[in-house]
Write a protein that binds this DNA or RNA. Structure first.
Lengths: 141, 141
DNA sequence: TAAATAGTTACACTTACTGTAACAATTATT
DNA sequence: AATAATTGTTACAGTAAGTGTAACTATTTA
Protein backbone atom coordinates (compact mmCIF):
# COMPACT_ATOMS: atom_id res chain seq x y z
CA UNK A 1 0.00 0.00 0.00
CA UNK A 2 1.43 3.32 -0.99
CA UNK A 3 1.63 6.14 1.52
CA UNK A 4 -1.21 8.00 -0.09
CA UNK A 5 -3.47 4.98 -0.39
CA UNK A 6 -2.90 4.18 3.26
CA UNK A 7 -3.77 7.72 4.25
CA UNK A 8 -6.88 7.61 2.14
CA UNK A 9 -7.94 4.30 3.69
CA UNK A 10 -7.38 5.65 7.18
CA UNK A 11 -9.45 8.73 6.48
CA UNK A 12 -12.27 6.68 4.99
CA UNK A 13 -12.33 4.56 8.13
CA UNK A 14 -12.23 7.61 10.37
CA UNK A 15 -15.08 9.26 8.49
CA UNK A 16 -17.15 6.12 8.81
CA UNK A 17 -16.41 5.85 12.51
CA UNK A 18 -17.19 9.52 12.99
CA UNK A 19 -20.55 9.16 11.22
CA UNK A 20 -21.54 6.25 13.48
CA UNK A 21 -20.72 8.05 16.71
CA UNK A 22 -21.26 7.17 19.53
CA UNK A 23 -21.65 3.55 18.54
CA UNK A 24 -18.34 1.67 18.16
CA UNK A 25 -17.91 -0.07 14.82
CA UNK A 26 -15.96 -3.28 14.35
CA UNK A 27 -13.30 -3.83 11.71
CA UNK A 28 -15.48 -6.10 9.58
CA UNK A 29 -18.23 -3.52 9.19
CA UNK A 30 -15.81 -0.71 8.47
CA UNK A 31 -13.86 -2.83 5.99
CA UNK A 32 -17.00 -3.83 4.11
CA UNK A 33 -18.21 -0.28 4.01
CA UNK A 34 -15.05 1.20 2.57
CA UNK A 35 -14.06 -1.80 0.46
CA UNK A 36 -10.81 -3.05 1.97
CA UNK A 37 -9.64 -6.22 3.66
CA UNK A 38 -10.52 -6.36 7.36
CA UNK A 39 -7.14 -7.66 8.44
CA UNK A 40 -5.28 -4.92 6.62
CA UNK A 41 -7.63 -2.35 8.02
CA UNK A 42 -7.00 -3.58 11.55
CA UNK A 43 -3.30 -3.06 10.96
CA UNK A 44 -3.92 0.57 10.06
CA UNK A 45 -6.40 1.10 12.86
CA UNK A 46 -4.03 -0.39 15.41
CA UNK A 47 -1.54 2.32 14.50
CA UNK A 48 -4.20 4.94 15.01
CA UNK A 49 -4.92 3.40 18.41
CA UNK A 50 -1.26 3.62 19.40
CA UNK A 51 -1.27 7.29 18.43
CA UNK A 52 -4.38 8.10 20.46
CA UNK A 53 -6.48 8.92 17.43
CA UNK A 54 -9.05 6.20 17.95
CA UNK A 55 -9.79 3.91 20.86
CA UNK A 56 -10.67 0.26 20.59
CA UNK A 57 -12.70 -2.06 22.77
CA UNK A 58 -12.73 -5.84 22.71
CA UNK A 59 -15.58 -8.29 22.95
CA UNK A 60 -19.22 -8.14 21.93
CA UNK A 61 -20.31 -4.65 20.91
CA UNK A 62 -16.65 -3.75 20.79
CA UNK A 63 -15.01 -1.85 17.98
CA UNK A 64 -13.46 1.50 17.20
CA UNK A 65 -14.35 5.01 18.29
CA UNK A 66 -12.83 8.39 17.59
CA UNK A 67 -10.81 9.57 20.55
CA UNK A 68 -10.80 13.23 19.56
CA UNK A 69 -13.39 15.57 18.19
CA UNK A 70 -13.36 15.45 14.39
CA UNK A 71 -12.77 19.21 14.33
CA UNK A 72 -9.49 18.72 16.20
CA UNK A 73 -8.24 15.77 14.19
CA UNK A 74 -6.16 16.81 11.21
CA UNK A 75 -4.52 14.96 8.35
CA UNK A 76 -0.97 15.50 9.46
CA UNK A 77 -1.31 13.54 12.67
CA UNK A 78 -3.07 10.75 10.83
CA UNK A 79 -0.33 10.70 8.23
CA UNK A 80 2.41 10.59 10.85
CA UNK A 81 0.64 7.81 12.70
CA UNK A 82 0.59 5.46 9.72
CA UNK A 83 3.73 6.41 7.83
CA UNK A 84 7.21 5.29 8.68
CA UNK A 85 8.94 6.27 5.47
CA UNK A 86 8.40 9.77 4.25
CA UNK A 87 6.84 10.64 0.91
CA UNK A 88 10.08 11.95 -0.51
CA UNK A 89 12.78 9.57 0.41
CA UNK A 90 16.33 9.71 -0.92
CA UNK A 91 18.28 6.51 -1.03
CA UNK A 92 21.74 7.46 0.20
CA UNK A 93 22.78 4.11 1.60
CA UNK A 94 24.37 3.35 -1.76
CA UNK A 95 28.02 2.56 -2.20
CA UNK A 96 29.77 5.40 -0.51
CA UNK A 97 30.95 8.23 -2.64
CA UNK A 98 34.10 10.13 -1.73
CA UNK A 99 33.61 12.63 1.06
CA UNK A 100 33.29 16.24 -0.10
CA UNK A 101 32.94 15.09 -3.69
CA UNK A 102 30.24 16.69 -5.80
CA UNK A 103 27.92 13.65 -5.58
CA UNK A 104 28.33 13.54 -1.78
CA UNK A 105 27.49 17.23 -1.48
CA UNK A 106 24.47 16.76 -3.71
CA UNK A 107 23.26 13.93 -1.52
CA UNK A 108 23.28 16.27 1.45
CA UNK A 109 21.66 18.97 -0.60
CA UNK A 110 18.77 16.74 -1.63
CA UNK A 111 18.26 15.31 1.82
CA UNK A 112 17.77 18.87 3.03
CA UNK A 113 15.53 19.82 0.11
CA UNK A 114 13.28 16.78 0.44
CA UNK A 115 13.02 17.37 4.14
CA UNK A 116 11.93 20.96 3.46
CA UNK A 117 9.31 19.75 1.03
CA UNK A 118 8.08 17.22 3.55
CA UNK A 119 7.61 19.99 6.11
CA UNK A 120 5.62 22.01 3.59
CA UNK A 121 3.34 19.10 2.87
CA UNK A 122 2.73 18.42 6.52
CA UNK A 123 1.98 22.08 7.17
CA UNK A 124 -0.65 21.89 4.49
CA UNK A 125 -2.11 18.78 6.07
CA UNK A 126 -2.31 20.40 9.47
CA UNK A 127 -5.09 22.71 8.40
CA UNK A 128 -7.30 19.92 7.07
CA UNK A 129 -9.51 18.28 9.68
CA UNK A 130 -11.77 15.25 9.43
CA UNK A 131 -14.67 17.56 10.13
CA UNK A 132 -13.75 19.86 7.26
CA UNK A 133 -13.45 16.88 4.94
CA UNK A 134 -16.85 15.54 5.96
CA UNK A 135 -18.43 18.93 5.41
CA UNK A 136 -16.80 19.29 2.03
CA UNK A 137 -17.83 15.91 0.66
CA UNK A 138 -21.37 16.24 2.03
CA UNK A 139 -21.91 19.54 0.27
CA UNK A 140 -21.05 17.99 -3.04
CA UNK A 141 -23.83 16.48 -5.10
CA UNK B 1 14.74 3.68 -8.45
CA UNK B 2 12.51 5.95 -6.45
CA UNK B 3 11.40 9.27 -7.87
CA UNK B 4 13.70 11.22 -5.61
CA UNK B 5 16.72 9.01 -6.25
CA UNK B 6 16.19 9.35 -9.97
CA UNK B 7 15.98 13.11 -9.67
CA UNK B 8 19.11 13.18 -7.59
CA UNK B 9 20.97 11.03 -10.11
CA UNK B 10 19.85 13.24 -12.98
CA UNK B 11 21.02 16.37 -11.19
CA UNK B 12 24.39 14.82 -10.36
CA UNK B 13 24.86 13.97 -14.01
CA UNK B 14 23.78 17.44 -15.13
CA UNK B 15 26.15 19.10 -12.68
CA UNK B 16 29.01 16.95 -13.94
CA UNK B 17 28.17 17.73 -17.55
CA UNK B 18 27.87 21.40 -16.74
CA UNK B 19 31.28 21.44 -15.08
CA UNK B 20 32.91 19.85 -18.13
CA UNK B 21 31.45 22.30 -20.62
CA UNK B 22 32.02 22.58 -23.56
CA UNK B 23 33.49 19.08 -23.80
CA UNK B 24 30.84 16.33 -24.20
CA UNK B 25 31.11 13.57 -21.65
CA UNK B 26 30.17 9.97 -22.34
CA UNK B 27 27.93 7.87 -20.14
CA UNK B 28 30.76 5.71 -18.82
CA UNK B 29 32.71 8.68 -17.48
CA UNK B 30 29.65 10.30 -15.96
CA UNK B 31 28.50 7.03 -14.39
CA UNK B 32 31.90 6.40 -12.84
CA UNK B 33 32.09 9.91 -11.52
CA UNK B 34 28.72 9.86 -9.79
CA UNK B 35 28.72 6.18 -8.86
CA UNK B 36 25.87 4.64 -10.82
CA UNK B 37 25.54 2.02 -13.53
CA UNK B 38 26.20 3.37 -17.02
CA UNK B 39 23.25 1.60 -18.60
CA UNK B 40 20.81 2.95 -16.06
CA UNK B 41 22.28 6.39 -16.41
CA UNK B 42 21.82 6.27 -20.17
CA UNK B 43 18.15 5.51 -19.61
CA UNK B 44 17.79 8.64 -17.53
CA UNK B 45 19.87 10.74 -19.89
CA UNK B 46 17.86 9.57 -22.89
CA UNK B 47 14.76 11.03 -21.23
CA UNK B 48 16.57 14.30 -20.73
CA UNK B 49 17.49 14.25 -24.40
CA UNK B 50 13.87 13.73 -25.42
CA UNK B 51 12.94 16.73 -23.31
CA UNK B 52 15.58 19.00 -24.81
CA UNK B 53 17.53 19.33 -21.59
CA UNK B 54 20.71 17.76 -22.89
CA UNK B 55 21.88 16.85 -26.35
CA UNK B 56 23.73 13.72 -27.27
CA UNK B 57 26.17 12.89 -30.03
CA UNK B 58 27.22 9.46 -31.22
CA UNK B 59 30.64 8.13 -32.15
CA UNK B 60 34.17 8.96 -31.01
CA UNK B 61 34.29 12.07 -28.82
CA UNK B 62 30.56 11.84 -28.56
CA UNK B 63 28.62 12.17 -25.34
CA UNK B 64 26.26 14.51 -23.55
CA UNK B 65 26.11 18.28 -23.37
CA UNK B 66 23.74 20.69 -21.64
CA UNK B 67 21.32 22.15 -24.13
CA UNK B 68 20.37 25.14 -21.99
CA UNK B 69 22.27 27.53 -19.79
CA UNK B 70 22.48 26.13 -16.26
CA UNK B 71 20.87 29.32 -14.96
CA UNK B 72 17.77 28.59 -17.03
CA UNK B 73 17.48 24.91 -16.18
CA UNK B 74 15.36 24.27 -13.11
CA UNK B 75 14.46 21.20 -11.09
CA UNK B 76 10.84 21.05 -12.12
CA UNK B 77 11.54 20.45 -15.78
CA UNK B 78 14.11 17.81 -14.90
CA UNK B 79 11.63 16.16 -12.58
CA UNK B 80 8.91 16.15 -15.21
CA UNK B 81 11.29 14.75 -17.81
CA UNK B 82 12.16 11.66 -15.79
CA UNK B 83 8.97 11.03 -13.84
CA UNK B 84 5.90 9.32 -15.14
CA UNK B 85 4.20 8.62 -11.87
CA UNK B 86 3.78 11.52 -9.51
CA UNK B 87 5.19 11.63 -6.00
CA UNK B 88 1.79 11.45 -4.42
CA UNK B 89 -0.18 8.85 -6.20
CA UNK B 90 -3.55 7.51 -5.14
CA UNK B 91 -4.50 4.04 -6.22
CA UNK B 92 -8.14 4.31 -7.28
CA UNK B 93 -8.23 1.43 -9.74
CA UNK B 94 -9.45 -0.79 -6.91
CA UNK B 95 -12.69 -2.67 -7.00
CA UNK B 96 -15.25 -0.04 -7.73
CA UNK B 97 -17.07 1.51 -4.85
CA UNK B 98 -20.63 2.64 -5.27
CA UNK B 99 -21.00 5.97 -7.02
CA UNK B 100 -21.66 8.89 -4.69
CA UNK B 101 -20.84 6.76 -1.68
CA UNK B 102 -18.63 8.25 0.99
CA UNK B 103 -15.56 6.24 -0.10
CA UNK B 104 -16.09 7.30 -3.71
CA UNK B 105 -16.34 10.94 -2.73
CA UNK B 106 -13.22 10.63 -0.62
CA UNK B 107 -11.33 9.16 -3.56
CA UNK B 108 -12.15 12.26 -5.58
CA UNK B 109 -11.28 14.46 -2.65
CA UNK B 110 -7.84 12.91 -2.27
CA UNK B 111 -7.11 12.92 -5.97
CA UNK B 112 -7.68 16.65 -5.89
CA UNK B 113 -5.68 17.16 -2.70
CA UNK B 114 -2.68 15.17 -3.91
CA UNK B 115 -2.78 17.02 -7.18
CA UNK B 116 -2.72 20.33 -5.28
CA UNK B 117 0.25 19.16 -3.26
CA UNK B 118 2.01 18.08 -6.41
CA UNK B 119 1.56 21.55 -7.87
CA UNK B 120 3.03 23.09 -4.72
CA UNK B 121 6.06 20.87 -4.90
CA UNK B 122 6.65 21.66 -8.54
CA UNK B 123 6.30 25.39 -7.90
CA UNK B 124 9.02 25.06 -5.33
CA UNK B 125 11.21 23.20 -7.79
CA UNK B 126 10.77 25.84 -10.44
CA UNK B 127 12.86 28.36 -8.54
CA UNK B 128 15.82 26.03 -8.12
CA UNK B 129 18.25 26.04 -11.03
CA UNK B 130 21.26 23.86 -11.71
CA UNK B 131 23.38 26.98 -11.47
CA UNK B 132 22.02 27.84 -8.05
CA UNK B 133 22.67 24.30 -6.86
CA UNK B 134 26.25 24.39 -8.12
CA UNK B 135 26.86 27.69 -6.40
CA UNK B 136 25.37 26.45 -3.18
CA UNK B 137 27.38 23.24 -2.95
CA UNK B 138 30.60 24.98 -3.99
CA UNK B 139 30.31 27.53 -1.21
CA UNK B 140 30.10 24.79 1.37
CA UNK B 141 33.33 23.60 2.94
C1' DT C 1 -17.07 -19.98 30.39
C1' DA C 2 -18.21 -18.70 25.79
C1' DA C 3 -18.28 -15.72 22.15
C1' DA C 4 -16.93 -11.67 19.83
C1' DT C 5 -13.63 -8.76 18.90
C1' DA C 6 -8.89 -6.41 18.37
C1' DG C 7 -4.13 -7.26 17.42
C1' DT C 8 -0.52 -9.92 15.26
C1' DT C 9 1.88 -13.26 12.57
C1' DA C 10 2.51 -16.13 8.61
C1' DC C 11 2.56 -17.32 3.97
C1' DA C 12 1.96 -17.98 -0.81
C1' DC C 13 1.45 -15.12 -4.70
C1' DT C 14 2.37 -11.57 -7.38
C1' DT C 15 4.41 -7.46 -8.70
C1' DA C 16 7.99 -4.31 -8.97
C1' DC C 17 12.75 -3.07 -8.54
C1' DT C 18 17.92 -3.86 -9.44
C1' DG C 19 21.98 -4.62 -11.60
C1' DT C 20 24.07 -6.18 -15.36
C1' DA C 21 24.83 -7.49 -19.78
C1' DA C 22 23.91 -7.76 -24.48
C1' DC C 23 22.18 -6.01 -28.59
C1' DA C 24 20.70 -2.43 -32.08
C1' DA C 25 21.17 2.20 -34.00
C1' DT C 26 23.87 6.10 -35.13
C1' DT C 27 27.67 8.79 -36.42
C1' DA C 28 32.49 10.73 -36.67
C1' DT C 29 36.87 9.37 -38.31
C1' DT C 30 40.04 7.20 -41.18
C1' DA D 1 33.18 1.87 -47.24
C1' DA D 2 34.91 0.13 -43.01
C1' DT D 3 35.75 0.76 -38.31
C1' DA D 4 35.19 1.97 -33.81
C1' DA D 5 33.06 4.53 -30.29
C1' DT D 6 29.20 5.89 -28.62
C1' DT D 7 24.02 6.39 -27.55
C1' DG D 8 19.65 4.11 -27.06
C1' DT D 9 17.01 -0.04 -26.06
C1' DT D 10 15.89 -4.63 -24.73
C1' DA D 11 16.27 -8.69 -21.97
C1' DC D 12 16.76 -11.26 -18.02
C1' DA D 13 17.88 -13.45 -13.81
C1' DG D 14 17.88 -12.35 -9.04
C1' DT D 15 16.09 -9.93 -5.38
C1' DA D 16 13.12 -7.25 -2.74
C1' DA D 17 8.77 -5.44 -1.73
C1' DG D 18 3.85 -5.27 -1.87
C1' DT D 19 -0.92 -7.87 -1.67
C1' DG D 20 -4.52 -10.52 -0.11
C1' DT D 21 -5.88 -13.82 2.79
C1' DA D 22 -6.08 -16.71 6.46
C1' DA D 23 -5.00 -18.28 10.86
C1' DC D 24 -3.60 -17.54 15.27
C1' DT D 25 -3.27 -15.06 19.97
C1' DA D 26 -4.89 -11.72 23.40
C1' DT D 27 -8.46 -9.31 25.55
C1' DT D 28 -12.81 -8.22 27.12
C1' DT D 29 -17.83 -8.29 27.73
C1' DA D 30 -21.90 -10.76 28.78
Amino acid sequence: MSASTKLSTAVKALCYISNCYPEPKNSTDIANSIGVNASKLRKILSMLVKNDIVESSYGVKGGFLLKKDSSKLHLQEIYCAIEDRKAFYLDVRKKDVKKNSMPAKLNSYFLELFSDIQVDIEEKMKIITIKSILEKINNKK
